[in-house]
Design a protein around this nucleic acid. Structure first.
Length: 480
RNA sequence: CGGGGCGUAGCGCAGCCUGGUAGCGCACCUGCCUUGGGCGCAGGGGGUCGUGUGUUCAAAUCACACCGCCCCGACCA
């Protein structure tokens, strides 16, 4: 593709984001399919890395992968009142199939709680059948009015875990266990710091008793809900008649959970680390941790450089960019835009000195190391990049988190924040989980992102809207 | 779905007002030359002007409708 300039972040953050996605060759709008995107190899490779990290953790926690149908009988959605109300506006419905109008339309799944509830009812009879711990990697469709690549598209890829338990305590334990998995992957793989917390009633999943989320701060200060884990209580158990016989011989409805992360994570990754030169990837997720660019002038140099370069690349199991007809400069820009953590340079001078040059994507710093030490040096550099990306993101989040003790202060801080101009903050304030507060915040388009599980501030206080006592400060922000 | 902007070669754009043989830069192809941060020169290929209907001798250009993308709002992972 043609490679052109990237809009600077401080000029227009939304334009910058789109430029980075396009210039990084990760995805493009599907153009002929409203609100959808094509995920290109560079983007999909990142998703595959995320899948591996998540899937291995799910498996380790005892979950097994399954697959349920894309199409769900429309009547299923209606069985859980809150669920249907929440999802109705964004459903795509199939009414004609095989050339005939269907007796009962199918909805294309916006999520699978209902169809899974139906099968749980068939699979579960006794407490001995519990817990059921399953996960599916799937696509879902939600008819969104406004889309942005990776962050919100009509069709998106995700995983949805669904579990059924004999007790509420056990279900809740599961919900929190998965929230920890999400936080672990976000921080330790994606280098994206998150705040674990409880969603307010107004923001919880339609049909859940309670939702938990991880929220992260993007470079423009907006919050991104990066993963959710729901305590479904017995709501779907009752709606789909998922009963089991207890040890004591009585009948009870199962306690369910569901949880998911999506390709939205890739959007979060981009908006956490990337810069005005393009994508920046943490080594643990980068499809190419390093790329070697050979530099030569004459034919004899070329063969000598390529020979040594080939050996180094093979030893390190990294890609060598030996494309002809491209100058090294052009190659440097190429890999820089694609976020490759380390670009190595090897030219005649290095051949003579027995060295090789390592350039870090995050800091731009160059380091010359002996070829004999390059394996060790690369490993160290990649570790250093991973560490410093997380540290930088944490620092930025901390610097942009402020306390406010009146609703007017919250409004002053957040009123003029937009996705384009940035300037967003996480405002820690005492607010009650109450519609009154939601309404007041909505006046300047802010929301309570979550109620942190770990209170890092000053404990109880009085709600700055209702005046009622609350146990701790909550995260208020503008969000994607 | 409401408001605004946009849609012309792979990408970025000019042309449209005032209708008359579709242009520029980058990218691409060939050759020579270059290569430590986007080389240069010469030659060359590539377009149903978003789609449809209408007005006209003639439409990228005028009118109407539709579609898509981006931004803002309401809805949302």
């Amino acid at each position: 593709m043609a490679e052109s300039r990237i809009t600077p972040r401080n000029q227009d953050f939304a334009a910058w984001y789109q430029d980075v996605v396009l210039q990084g060759d990760m995805a493009e709008p599907a153009e002929i399919v409203k609100g959808c995107m094509v995920i290109k190899p560079n983007g999909y490779a990142i998703w595959e890395r995320l899948q591996q990290e998540l899937d291995s953790r799910f498996k380790a926690a005892g979950h097994q992968n399954v697959y349920f149908p894309l199409l769900i009988p429309q009547s299923f959605l209606k069985k859980e009142a809150e669920h249907v109300e929440g999802f109705s506006p964004e459903l795509a419905v199939v009414t004609i199939a095989g050339g005939k109008e269907l007796e009962e339309p199918y909805v294309i799944r916006p999520t699978s709680e209902t169809i899974i509830g139906h099968f749980f009812a068939r699979w579960i009879q006794s407490w001995r059948d519990l817990p059921v711990l399953i996960n599916q990697w799937a696509n879902v469709v939600r008819w969104e009015l406004r889309t942005r690549m990776f962050l919100r598209t009509t069709e998106f890829l995700w995983q949805e875990g669904h579990t059924a338990h004999a007790s509420h305590e056990e279900a809740l334990e599961e919900v929190l266990k998965i929230l920890d998995v999400y936080a672990d992957v976000a921080e330790n793989v994606m280098a994206m710091p998150v705040i674990k917390g409880i969603k307010t009633s107004g923001e919880k999943f339609a049909g859940a008793l309670r939702s938990y989320s991880i929220e992260s701060m993007m470079q423009n200060g907006l919050a991104l809900q990066s993963g959710t884990s729901h305590d479904l209580g017995q709501n779907f158990g009752k709606a789909f008649d998922v009963k089991f016989q207890t040890r004591e011989g009585t009948l009870d409805y199962v306690w369910q959970t569901s949880w998911g992360v999506s390709t939205r994570l890739i959007g979060g990754l981009i908006m956490t680390h990337s810069d005005d030169k393009g994508l920046v990837l943490p080594p643990k997720l980068a499809p190419n941790a390093a790329v070697l660019v050979p530099i030569y002038r004459k034919d004899d140099e070329r063969s000598a450089v390529l020979e040594t370069a080939g050996k180094i690349a093979a030893d390190l199991n990294i890609k060598i960019d030996d494309r002809e007809g491209q100058t090294p400069g052009a190659k440097f820009f190429h890999w820089e835009r694609r976020g490759v953590p380390v670009v190595m340079e090897l030219g005649p001078r290095d051949l003579a000195s027995g060295n090789v040059v390592l350039k870090r994507r995050d800091t731009g710093g160059k380091e010359t190391v002996a070829q004999a030490d390059v394996s060790h040096a690369l490993k160290e550099t990649l570790t250093a990049i991973q560490t410093s990306l997380l540290a930088a993101a944490k620092t930025r989040q901390k610097e942009n988190t402020v306390l406010a003790n009146s609703i007017e202060d919250v409004e002053d801080i957040l009123r003029d924040v937009t996705a384009e101009k940035g300037g967003g903050k996480f405002v820690m304030a005492h607010l009650k989980d109450d519609p009154q507060c939601d309404v007041r915040l909505k006046e300047f388009k802010a929301t309570i992102r979550n109620i942190p599980l770990i209170d890092e501030y000053d404990g109880p206080g009085k709600c700055i809207v209702t005046g009622e006592p609350v146990s701790q400060r909550v995260v208020v922000a503008k969000a994607y």
